[in-house]
Computed example of a mutant assay.
Amino acid sequence: MTSRVTFISPAMSSSLRGARFDDGASIDADGEARAHAAAGSLPAAARVVISPSVRCRETATALGLRGAEAAELPGLDVGRWRGLSLAEVGAEEPEAVARWLADPACAPHGGESAEELLARVAQWLDASLETEGRTLAVVEPEVVRAAVTYVLGAPPAAFWRLDVPPLTATTISGRSGRWNLGLGRPLGPAEAVAES
């Protein structure tokens, strides 16, 4: 049995544009238009799951997707830093930011560490190996980063070295306890997401 998961990152929002930790902002008009235009480029799926954030729900809607909220796949909980930019936090708490970026087990913001996110996403992926066919997952960029880190067997510090642009697809396929990575593809009317 082969299981495929295509992770779709949310469309552009004011939070993403301002490099802010998610603050619950909606996707912007351009992001919504791009998602509408990309709707026909998605492969058929046996199931659709959506991170429980405003921008992921709105991206899924704009893509014409209906699915279940994936309670296991919210973005990284950054505690009291939510809604702030990394520059703002760095100006107020430079030592805390330095520790956070250097140590994946560190969570000075009072939320979740990168290691905790990695473990949560890995657990979801392992369970997904039992799902035949394709899953479309509209999720926060850090969930995609965690999945790629896990699939590659990379050390947790690699999580910080991955960038996930808005409205892109990253596909993994797995069977027999092993995942393979198909690198991110832009979503758009002319670029159909190829079957992996």
Score class of each variant (00 low, 15 high):
T6V: 15
S15N: 13
A39W: 01
E95C: 07
A46C: 02
E72I: 00
R47K: 12
E58H: 08
P186R: 02
T61Q: 13
M1A: 14
P52G: 06
L65Q: 03
T131M: 12
G31N: 02
L118P: 02
H36I: 15
A39H: 09
A96P: 10
L167Q: 04
L76C: 11
S85A: 13
W100V: 01
A157I: 15
S113A: 13
W160F: 15
S3N: 03
E72W: 11
R185P: 00
E69K: 06
A107W: 05
V151D: 00
E58A: 03
C106I: 06
R120N: 10
C106G: 12
S26V: 02
E32K: 13
E132Y: 00
F21K: 03
R34M: 13
T135E: 06
S85C: 05
R145E: 04
T2V: 15
R17N: 13
A45Y: 05
A45S: 14
T131E: 15
S53P: 00
I50H: 01
P104G: 03
S51T: 07
S3Q: 01
P94M: 04
V49D: 02
M12G: 12
T135S: 08
E88R: 07
A194V: 14
S41I: 06
S15L: 04
P166G: 08
G79F: 04
F21A: 07
R66A: 14
E112A: 11
L16V: 13
R80E: 12
A35W: 00
A192G: 11
P186C: 04
G75D: 14
R4L: 09
G174R: 06
V97D: 09
E112V: 14
P104F: 05
E93D: 13
G83V: 03
A190P: 00
